[in-house]
């Protein structure tokens, strides 16, 4: 079965790009519009990978990652976050919260697919 991916972003355009890119690469993509929505969908669903923005209203990405890891659901599910610049401090905090890796914006289709493949272990 195709891998299930959840993309969490408050920006509709980024969600759409992610969805188009990953659907073309053969993945099933579900969208969530902010951290809270992402948390609920991730808990209810059965995803192989979660891609999330960090800066979002209602619940930011860091809080979502932390809540997900602490809830005990989605243990071992890779979580990739989107970050604008290569911000070392943010990376450290996101990883401490339980994130697996990151992708730097702006990204192109190729780099997104490459990271997704890397993290899913093909």
């Amino acid at each position: 079965m195709d891998a299930q991916i959840l993309t969490v972003d408050d920006s509709a355009s980024i969600r759409m790009t992610t969805k188009i890119t990953l659907t073309n690469a053969g993945y099933q993509v579900t969208e969530a519009v902010d951290g809270l929505d992402g948390l609920n969908k991730a808990k209810a669903g059965n995803y192989d990978l979660i891609i999330t923005d960090l800066n979002m209203p209602n619940m930011n990405g860091l809080q979502m990652i932390e809540a997900l890891r602490q809830s005990g659901s989605n243990v071992g599910v890779p979580i990739i976050f989107l970050t604008t610049e290569s911000d070392a401090e943010l990376k450290t905090r996101a990883k401490a919260a339980g994130a697996t890796g990151w992708i730097t914006k702006p990204f192109n289709a190729e780099s997104l697919v490459k990271i997704v493949q890397k993290v899913l272990g093909r």
Partner: peptide, 14 residues
């Protein structure tokens, strides 16, 4: 690492 989503086997395969 595994709980946080890193797949060691994937890394070794890489």
């Amino acid at each position: 690492a595994m709980a946080n989503g890193t797949n060691p086997l994937g890394l070794l395969n890489e």
